[in-house]
Nucleic acid binder design. Structure first.
Lengths: 222, 222, 222, 222
DNA sequence: GATGAATGAGTATTCATTCAT
DNA sequence: GATGAATGAATACTCATTCAT
């Protein structure tokens, strides 16, 4: 069922596909370690191919970042689905947040793609779109169960993940797990009532707005 | 009372000081708009001076970022002090968070200096150090009043601000105020007990660790 | 017999090797004409390639100078060996000095590399090391034959060559051969006895000291 | 008799003259230590004046180098005269060479002015011209006494000094006195006949040619 | 198809020289 | 006169992207 060419393009020759995978793997390593500013020459070297091959597979650096992201977003969607499979709506939600956070925390490149939209506009957006219905279900279910404040929106989740990964990156060298504190803080904030939740002073992003956001923070140099 | 030369250096000639200000203003605009990777040529152009003039005032790009930051950090410290002056410890804390968040949210360059310590190590760190005692007092007082969870640490605040500014930057074009939602979320999470706070799963950073963190995320290129 | 890749690196592609040669040739011309301070842009222009190409072949300016020098040092070593092959020890020595002088006299860049060691430390030193045993033999043999003053040291030769090339450069435009006068002067000074040689008032450099010298006169800008 | 304004210009005001002297002294120190490539800002700082003042006294960097040289050439001429005053013509010559060598060996800036004529064309040449008659007398006398080879020319002396100072600079850090060896070598070469001097294979520079030489090796950047 | 060579615009920084204070 | 501020051309080096082999 995992058709490698969902867009109708003819499938790549076996060796081409193998190279594509090597490049993606190399890009993942390089970007994770040094961020998106790592050069494509470095990626190519890590992959053991020439730069030309990278450019044959991906029109430009941005496209490579996109493709990488698309791969990863699959993992994130999987985590959300796993949360949805959890019979306990609250636990499902929390587990998702934690696991997604762990993923982001460990991957600097992914974080940068999320933040700097000039990298990865199109495919990234498609990828994110896959995320939305699952998250919507996850949140909706928890709200119906009264486990989560009613004014929380599915579009809040990308922000939460972004915030957690920012914190993680900040302390990466010194205390990489520190972001779990802020996950806790946020989780407690997600709860309804107690002695009364502060209502959100601003409405959440509409889904279309979210797409727009994800489309982009303009970056000069990149 | 605002002595322009608090460090004992002789004051700059009138024209030089005027240009210094123009450069700082230009740098603020350019860095805010395009991030720290904007070139000094761009800053100079924006300021209407030659690059050489920028380099006469600031030994290198980092020093310019530092100077810019030092200016801003003063404002942040001021906000914290204002919070401390508030008779209501909870309200003081929350107001501080909101106002500091607003400052950060509006200034991408400041955010990047906070995150990427290769820009502005020394003066920045001195600046950040000014912050710490005030925030410690702010938190301590609120905890004694029972308004804030007991396991919150002063070193959590830079992270909170960082997270909020990340969220703000992400949605800057589409809904610049969105970060206020996450401020609310976090504030609610700060509250003690109710039907039970989740204890933090990770200890906070020790102050020395915080300094280490602030000293820096290594950036390749910079 | 002249294997182009004696170090085991895989040979360059034909076009690359062609460009490498063009760059070396251009560098020789430009450095010879204007000294090492000529810019790499100039070298590139002279070679008819982009700067990037220069940087692809040589990691930095120093490496280019090194490579250039390595080529030349081979010639110098060859001259010394040729001198050694001469059955007449005195004639061999003198011929070597004259021919080496002629080489240096014609190449300002080479002279500067010899003098300013910040350019080309490593390979240059290796190159110079090749020189030493041959020169030692050349001198030793002439001394045993009683043709050369006994207190002459092999480490005096680099100095002699340097002096000659300085003189040559000085008069390059007006009378390029003038250095031959000073070669004569020095050669006469090399002779033993006559009505008594003035003993050297200072001992020669030890070989290790010579290496240290060659490692470098620190140049500010370079 | 030491009129400070031999060229007819009106004498400088006392404070102006004082500044001129400070600048020359500073330039001597800075250029001696770091060579001519030291910046005029450094010279000004060392002199304790503004750059503008340097430019008021000397039209450009070259003129400053010239003036500096003119000062020094005086010392060299003095040494030559002292040699001439020596009743022993050979000893006078040798002493001059040694003392002049010592002066040059200690002053990198002076050496560079001698070599790179774009620095200090005009006044330098005038200065050098003062040298010539004294040296001519010194050599002529020694030749008449039969102490020096007959084909030696007065114009050989600048070359000899240049060669010695090159050697001195080369080993400056490791064995600053090494140039005395080469002085000895050359002195021995200066002697006439014995088992026969090798006649010079090239004629010496005519005095006008010497002037031309001193006028200049073109340097790019300077 | 794959390779890696070539390109050149872009970046931070320096310094001789000019000019307003 | 003196000062030091301003200028901008120049320089070494990088890297995304194109193209010959």
């Amino acid at each position: 069922m995992t058709d490698p060419t969902p867009n109708g393009a003819r499938p790549l020759r076996a060796d081409a596909e193998r190279n594509r995978q090597r490049i993606l793997r190399a890009a993942a390593e390089v970007f994770t370690a040094r961020g998106l500013q790592a050069s494509l020459d470095d990626v190519a070297r890590q992959a053991g191919v020439g730069v030309g091959t990278v450019y044959r597979r991906f029109p430009d650096k941005e496209a490579l970042a996109e493709a990488l992201f698309e791969e990863r977003i699959g993992a994130l969607v999987g985590l959300a689905e796993k949360g949805l499979a959890n019979p306990d709506s609250w636990d499902g939600l929390v587990t998702f947040l934690r696991e997604a956070g762990a993923l982001l925390a460990a991957d600097r490149g992914l974080r940068e793609i999320l933040m700097f939209a000039s990298y990865g506009k199109d495919r990234v957006n498609r990828g994110k779109a896959r995320m939305q219905p699952v998250v919507t279900a996850l949140v909706g279910r928890a709200q119906q169960d009264g486990k989560v404040r009613a004014d929380l929106a599915p579009t809040d989740f990308p922000f939460i993940e972004l915030m957690l990964s920012s914190a993680a990156e900040y302390a990466a060298e010194v205390k990489p797990g520190i972001w779990l504190r802020y996950l806790t803080l946020i989780i407690d904030g997600l709860r309804p009532a107690r002695d009364g939740v502060t209502p959100f002073p601003v409405s959440a992003l509409e889904p279309e707005q979210m797409l727009e956001v994800m489309r982009g923070i303009p970056q000069d140099g990149h």
